[in-house]
Simulated scan of single mutants.
Amino acid sequence: MTLGDVWLGEAIEKELIDPLDIAEIENWQTLPSRWKNLVKRDRQGNLQENGLIWGAPYRWGTTLIAYRSDKLDWQPQDWSDLWDERLSDRISMVNQPREIIGLTLKQLGKSYNTENLEEVPELKSELLNLNKRVKYYSDQHYLQPLVVGDVWVSVGWSNEIIPLMAKSPNIKAVVPTSGTAIWSDIWVKPKAKETETELSEIAKQWLNFCWQPQAARLMSLFADAASPVINTIDKDELEPDITNNPLLFIDSAIFDKCDFLEPLSKQSKEQYINLWKEVRNS
């Protein structure tokens, strides 16, 4: 079964999945540490360096800035560009507090995973200024206004923006230079009976396959997402359609500044939700 990484903590806490015995999966060792650490959790779903392994990341993407190149005579490069007066009432965004508050934190030089928002006093005013420029918030329909030209910039997920670019040559996209949010799809093991705790041989073979170079190349070419092992493959062995695509083969200096949306404490979650309500109701 596949699961988005932002749901992994909840699935663990609610005992919906079992940890994986990864010892017999040879290609686990090829996975970069950043991806291994993402799935090492305690039984409450929190990140733990020596925790159990609760999943197998197999593809990933980012939050991008998409824009209409035929409407703008300049190219957005970073989150700070969203505050440009020229984009007033010309932006659509996903309706996700962690994403919008997170990109604002990033614009202020902070992490998406800032625990105590009260330590960033300028955050609320920056969010209010950004909110004035946003015409639509929607998880399902944020790209439609961009297609018809009702907005000129959209903020959303790479697996939805990349295929749209193939159909619409006037739509371009960038990974913000100060870093962005990373998401990952993960293979997980649904909760099983006590007598069925071991992974099947087919499951082990499948996980090994997903981390093989050939599978990684195919994933990155045809799935509108990248494989977590793509950067472990010699660049000369990768197709130009991968290495020449900065949305998939991300510059390492930018990638190092990107964040997974990590689990937050209950108190921090309430801060994010309350701040989002204040901004949206302003």
Rank of each mutant, 00 (worst) to 15 (best):
S200N: 04
L128R: 13
D224S: 15
L87P: 00
Q48Y: 05
L87G: 02
Q271P: 02
N113H: 07
S33Y: 08
N281Q: 13
P76R: 11
S125G: 06
T63A: 06
N116G: 04
E237P: 01
S227K: 06
K189R: 14
I161A: 06
A192D: 03
G109E: 05
N95P: 00
G55V: 05
G61M: 14
K266M: 08
D251K: 10
G9P: 02
P228A: 12
S265E: 07
D84M: 09
L128S: 10
L164A: 13
V188S: 04
A226E: 04
W276F: 15
E119N: 12
T30L: 08
E126C: 06
V147T: 09
A203L: 09
I182C: 04
E118Y: 02
L199Y: 07
Y67R: 07
I273K: 14
R90Y: 09
W157H: 09
E196D: 09
T114M: 06
R68Y: 12
L143Y: 08
N37H: 10
K36G: 01
S265P: 03
T2M: 06
L143R: 11
D256T: 06
I12V: 12
E99Q: 14
S69Q: 13
V151R: 00
G4T: 14
F260S: 04
G179W: 03
P213A: 10
S88H: 12
Q205R: 13
I161R: 04
I202T: 14
R43Y: 10
A226Q: 03
N95C: 05
E26R: 13
A225S: 15
L221Q: 08
I242R: 03
D42G: 04
Q212D: 09
G149A: 13
